[in-house]
Amino acid sequence: PPVPSAHLPSHFMKGAIIQLATGELKRVEDLQTQDFVRSAEVSGGLKIDSSTVVDIQESQWPGFVLLHFVVGEQQSKVSIEVPPEHPFFVYGQGWSSCSPGRTAQLFSLPCHRLQVGDVCISISLQSLN
């Protein structure tokens, strides 16, 4: 498997300005589920999927976690490797990571703890048919 990147971009930093697809600007810590849903609705070609966390494991790469999701209506299995501080947006809950303490330390972004069963927002390409 490819070596995962340890670099997390600054858009997760508290105070980062995020532009929604509607043109509205919001701070990353103020985003709500509806902001993502509405943005996907007005975006051409992108759709929001519900991605349920089914397992959280240690990665073979030190300093990473291996997350397993089932994605969308098809319940497709997708796995990704991320640093434990990587935030995911959980429906109805908000930003969540495997290590809320590290996320707070590195990004000052308040987070819940990401757990098996959490339903995260992800995107994929809209089907053409």
Binding site: H11, C120, I123
Partner: peptide
């Protein structure tokens, strides 16, 4: 005088993972 500062603006979709299952051929 206040110097103008550029503020980075990030698109919403950069915050959420792109989780697309690999398509079978």
């Amino acid at each position: 005088n206040v110097e103008p500062r550029s503020v980075a603006v990030f698109p919403w979709h950069s915050l959420v993972p792109f989780l697309a299952p690999s398509q079978p051929d």
